[in-house]
Nucleic acid binder design. Structure first.
Lengths: 240, 240
DNA sequence: CGAGGTTTTGAGAAATGTCAACTAGTGTGG
DNA sequence: CCACACTAGTTGACATTTCTCAAAACCTCG
């Protein structure tokens, strides 16, 4: 069987890629061992601290990157400084807009993140060679489109209370890439300011709604960031 | 030269496709004459009136469709009935979520529209055969993602006045698929209720903001739908 | 011309934003 | 290891925006 053969011939697979999330669920899963080996020659693993800028709006892109750990915040800024977070990326998403000379968003490490940098030409060469890879990239784009549209409903039609509940639910269901089940305990990867920019609310309104959820027993909070959700269904009910 | 040859051999191209927008700027441009001919055998042109439902959320999809004329409204509805328009499609967009068994949005003709229906299996067969076609479909998905993210900024961070101005600007720049320049006179393809659902506002707020733009001389309105924008730069300024 | 639906306008209510003060974490240097 | 300083988060009072409900005006179409 193919899958067994693959495991037996694990030595074909670059060491760094062997346990890599991107190979199992991310775009590298589309590559055969030779392609993976060729790609691994030009990739580079880097760790970024929370707050570091990864990609600036309207700046030329030199690299794509697989998100291996942590959360990346994608945002757009109006001339007068108003900011909107337009997406979050979790492992094993591919970071960077394919087939564009420059980014249309800015990307920032929301938490500490590990990235696998892929030089732009390396990925684009592979994309022309592998229809399977291009297909996976398209599927990610379609998934991000679905997520963006879901979020538009939250931004346009939900109350502040529903927005905050929706955000917490989103994090619970996405924070752990290896786990299919939502998490009941997690660290918030975003500051209150970031949450506000994601939800189209002020920092104060976010804080008040979190306090309310806490008072109502829907969530527990330890320190500022550590959240426990005793009953996910109850949180889900608050999402509108 | 390829392009000249193509024009000389126009007889290879199905009659209905010859003047079709989708062949020039849409996804059919990726097909060679044989593929186009094969596809044309199973496509069907239909006209839909404003308000007709084209695709229901969570319903199985049997067809894709090229939008040839008019405006299609994509929307999502919350359990309690709150609605959010998550996108508008203009000619020559492809309607329908590729590689999904069911739609995640509902689609409705916002104005009278002409569609070229493509049976799901026909398009999906072609997609596996033509990397060029899949590439165009991906580019449309990426463009829609960019548009969705732009709109998230409008939904999350703009005032009601800026939202309405942004909407009018969007229509002015997209209503005519053959024209690169924004239009200064056009028919609004959406009712006030639809505009409200697109902007996350009530019908009354939309109306008030339109009245304000009219009073300020930024736009002129004849009847309920016919809009003239004497100075697009002035409208652009109101978009925030 | 009239009926039905759509749009506009007004007045008051509710939600969210703003500004300011206060509190609680977090990290650093003695 | 503790104390201090700094940043992030919370809470309160008030302002502003947007929503809600109601009525009137306006189109569109038969």
């Amino acid at each position: 069987m193919q899958t067994v053969r693959k495991d037996i011939h694990n030595s074909d697979i670059p060491v760094l890629c062997q346990s890599c999330e991107a190979r199992h669920q991310g775009i590298c899963g589309a590559l055969n061992p030779e392609q993976l080996l060729a790609l691994a020659k030009s990739t580079r693993r880097v760790r970024k601290d929370a707050g570091e800028e990864l990609l600036a709006d309207a700046m030329p892109i030199s690299s794509y990157a697989n998100v291996l750990r942590g959360v990346v915040k994608l945002s757009k800024v109006l001339e007068d400084g108003r900011q909107q977070v337009v997406g979050l990326q979790f492992a094993p998403d591919l970071l960077g807009r394919p087939f564009a000379a420059e980014s249309r968003v800015s990307a920032e490490a929301a938490s500490e993140v590990d990235l696998c940098l892929i030089p732009k030409p390396a990925l684009e060469t592979l994309l022309t060679q592998s229809a399977a890879l291009e297909h996976l990239v398209m599927l990610q784009a379609l998934r991000e489109l679905d997520e963006a549209r879901d979020w538009m409903v939250t931004l346009g039609r939900k109350s502040a209370a529903e927005k905050v509940a929706s955000f917490l639910y989103l994090i619970a269901t996405h924070i752990d890439p290896t786990e299919v089940e939502p998490e009941t305990r997690f660290e918030l990867p975003l500051t209150r300011a970031d949450i506000g920019d994601f939800l189209g609310l002020t920092i104060e309104t976010v804080s008040r709604q979190i306090s309310r959820l806490k008072a109502d027993g829907v969530i527990e909070i330890l320190g500022n960031r550590h959240v426990t959700v005793p009953d996910l269904a109850r949180l889900r009910l608050r999402c509108g």
